[in-house]
């Protein structure tokens, strides 16, 4: 049962074998090609495997609904492939912390340092969500301020 296999993998305490997860997602999609979790999982597995162009293709193939569910993943793949204008467009009005981090990194890479500084100021004024995030914020804010 491919769906049960995928569910079990995703419930595991740690996920290290992203090829295995990708295979499990593809197995689900073979019989259920619009399964939202399997589509989302495939995109994340491709990002984990540094296959950013394949992730963008998977997102395009998945349609608007997948694009909405995977806004962070799409923005991140665009950022990693240097499609900064497209990423910026997608990140307009970013409200979640993950999206704000991508937006700040896009702004930094595009040398829009005022935008990056504003985003890091916002992120710094709100509660952190991840262990080590305060340190990341401090380092990245310093990099922006050094420009």
């Amino acid at each position: 049962n491919p769906t049960a296999t995928l569910t079990t993998l995703l419930r595991g305490s740690t996920i290290e074998d992203h090829e295995e997860v990708l295979k499990a997602a593809n197995a689900v999609l073979k019989s259920s090609k619009s399964n939202p979790d399997a589509l989302h999982t495939r995109v994340v597995a491709l990002l984990q495997l540094d296959r950013f162009d394949d992730a963008l293709r998977a997102l395009d193939d998945g349609g608007d609904k997948l694009g909405e569910a995977c806004r962070l993943e799409k923005a991140y793949a665009l950022y990693k492939t240097g499609k900064l204008a497209e990423a910026e467009n997608l990140l307009q009005g970013a409200d979640k912390r993950g999206l704000k981090h991508v937006a700040a990194q896009v702004a930094y890479r595009a040398e829009k340092f005022e935008d990056a500084a504003r985003l890091y100021k916002e992120l710094g004024s709100e509660p952190v969500a991840i262990e080590g995030e305060e340190n990341d914020l401090r380092i990245n804010s310093s990099a922006v301020d050094a420009q």
Binding site: H40, Y76, R97, Q105, I139, A143
Partner: peptide, 21 residues
Amino acid sequence: KPLFFDAAWNYIEYPGREVEK
């Protein structure tokens, strides 16, 4: 070139394991 971290990466997670909903 100053140090700059890929902080956004930590937010990428599989469905059901998201850092934030």
